[in-house]
Amino acid sequence: MNAFDIAQLRLANHQLTAPRFTHPAEVAAWFGAIQAQDYAQAKWALGIRVPGATEETIEQAFADKSVVRTSLLRGTLHVVAAADIRWLLTLVGPRRIAACATLYKKEALDDATFDLCKDLLINSLQGGNQLTREELSSVFGQAGIEATGFRLSHIIQRAAFSQLLCYGTRRGASPTFTLLDEWIAPSRPLSREEALAELAKRYFTSHGPATLPDFAWWSGLTLKEAKQGLELNKSVLVCETLDGETYWLSPATTAPQPPNPDTQILAGFDEYVLGYRNRSICLPEAYTRQVITVNGIFNPTIVQNGRVLGTWARMHKKDSVVVTKKLFGPVSQATDQEIQTAAERYSHFVRKPLVVAENGFAAQGF
């Protein structure tokens, strides 16, 4: 197996060249968790993996509560299938709370304050209420608790890690928060060993071929915990070696030859680029800073045959979407046409015609 083979297998497992699902919740469950700090980008990360999907498809999945957004792996926002949220939070939540102890102390947030915040959240959100960040800040402020900026973020995130609240529906452009137990029906709990095994299985199935350090980084688990999760799955996984590294994947994986389509425009923070400690398979080191900023923002990417060719950006106007590409270097006319086709798929997703921009794409309706 070489780097090209790994890239083709990853494309297939990421549901980019061999999509097999028809509903966003199926995609979320396949991955276990999908990075989602940017809501619009998260919708496209789901939508590109559901053939024919539009933004309305994804919005409906959030509205019908089959998928949910919350703070999860590595303390960042993710989209998960509703049936998975509790066992995932049970597995990673306590560690994330412990990891934030210094940050809590810096913001003068002690256990007594968190207990009071918990009571205020329950009282203000129970009965199906959904409040914005600003409204929650007001609730805390009226009780004499300063809750703005990072301090408010820590209070909300701690409540999410504690399985108290999650994101609800959006009110215009503003996200809301609601009580998890009122939003999502109870699901069967997993033991810690079962949860470790399940998360490892989903990661290596959806992200494979991948290494143990990749899984440990992505999950936020300790290397010991990640290794335990892998050990529990070795009977259902296979491994390949490249440059002294061992890569694990499901034996059921088959990559289309050649990939179809072989050029995609991916969301910012897309799991295909983000979901590994070592990203050299897809991202040339020389261009890392063009894709990943110094403050950890993952820009949307243009990918061909599993390799990042450049980045892209979109601007929504009233009756159109302007998509602009920034390539790392010259490409063939055929590749340029494939990028155009990929951009047209995005324009279909947002239900707006694509228009010409500098270094952009030709206009086309749908």
Rank of each mutant, 00 (worst) to 15 (best):
S153T: 12
S153V: 12
I156G: 05
I156C: 08
I156T: 08
Q157P: 08
Q157K: 14
Q157L: 14
Q157G: 11
A159F: 09
A160K: 10
S162V: 15
S162C: 15
L165P: 05
L165W: 10
G168M: 00
G168L: 00
T169E: 14
R170K: 15
R171W: 01
R171F: 03
R171S: 11
G172H: 06
G172F: 02
P175V: 12
T176W: 13
F177L: 11
F177T: 04
L179S: 03
L180D: 10
L180Q: 06
E182W: 07
E182I: 12
W183E: 01
I184Q: 04
A185C: 14
A185F: 15
S187E: 15
S187F: 13
R188V: 15
P189R: 07
P189C: 11
S191W: 13
S191C: 10
E193L: 07
E193I: 09
E194M: 04
A195T: 02
A195V: 04
L196E: 04
L196F: 07
E198N: 15
L199A: 07
A200V: 05
K201P: 07
K201R: 14
K201W: 10
K201H: 15
R202C: 03
T205N: 10
T205H: 11
H207L: 13
H207T: 13
G208M: 00
A210Y: 01
L212E: 00
L212K: 00
L212P: 03
P213E: 04
P213N: 02
F215L: 05
A216S: 05
W218N: 08
W218Y: 12
W218E: 07
S219D: 01
S219M: 10
L221H: 00
L221K: 03
